[in-house]
């Protein structure tokens, strides 16, 4: 965790990209977030178009934080975990609210992790923390690189601990400076971030 310890910049937004194996990974990560977590958490999880919002409902029941699917133009609030609705890209706008888009798929995906990460990097610059978790494709690598290029922080799930390792491996290849952690280390880091920024 040496790389992250050096970071002195205040984090204002956490974006997470996850694909195959994501239900399990989010179940283990989001449910660990403390009550009154002081950052917005924005998640793109690849899933089928006619998914009925079960993921958000499930996580909401099991977590201390409020977990919800995003509505267009919804303001971004600290302590809430937002999930991209199926079949829409999710973007962050300058006024710190969300916008959705039905534009073409990116990396065969809608929502696409790259689309969210690119707009998050653009808006939050060095105050953005991007996390890539388990998955079978390469979506998110480019976006994670853009977060780092803007001065933000990158974490990738240790591929050996991931249900599907291709997405974390692709992200590490593209962003070699990313911190590589397993899920419980990521949860610990996010909790420590909370304490550090409060003190």
């Amino acid at each position: 965790m040496k790389f992250i310890e050096k970071s002195t910049v205040e984090i204002r937004c956490i974006v997470i990209g996850v694909s195959a194996g994501g239900f399990d990974a989010l179940d283990r990560l989001v449910t660990k977030l403390p009550l009154d977590f002081s950052f917005p958490v924005v998640i793109v999880q690849h899933r089928i178009a006619d998914n009925d919002g079960y993921l958000a409902q499930h996580l909401n029941l099991k977590s201390a934080s409020v977990v919800k699917e995003v509505i267009d133009k919804e303001p971004i609030c600290a302590g809430i975990v937002y999930i991209a609705p199926p079949d829409y890209h999710l973007l962050i706008e300058r006024g710190l609210y969300f916008s959705l888009s039905k534009d073409d798929k990116v990396n065969y995906s809608r929502p696409s992790i790259d689309v969210l990460f690119e707009s998050a990097a653009d808006i939050y610059r060095q105050a953005c923390l991007g996390i890539i978790l388990t998955g079978k494709n390469q979506d998110g690598s480019m976006g994670l690189a853009q977060i780092v290029a803007a001065g933000g922080t990158a974490i990738v799930q240790d591929p050996q601990s991931a249900i599907a390792s291709e997405m974390p491996r692709a992200a590490i290849k593209k962003v070699p400076t990313a911190a590589i952690l397993n899920l419980s280390e990521i949860a610990d880091y996010l909790t420590s971030l909370e304490k550090r920024q409060k003190s």
């Binding site: 890209h89 706008e93 916008s99 534009d103």
Partner: peptide, 9 residues
């Protein structure tokens, strides 16, 4: 227009 998606286009 929503700036972030406009920029993508």
């Amino acid at each position: 227009y929503a700036r972030s998606s406009l920029k993508r286009r």
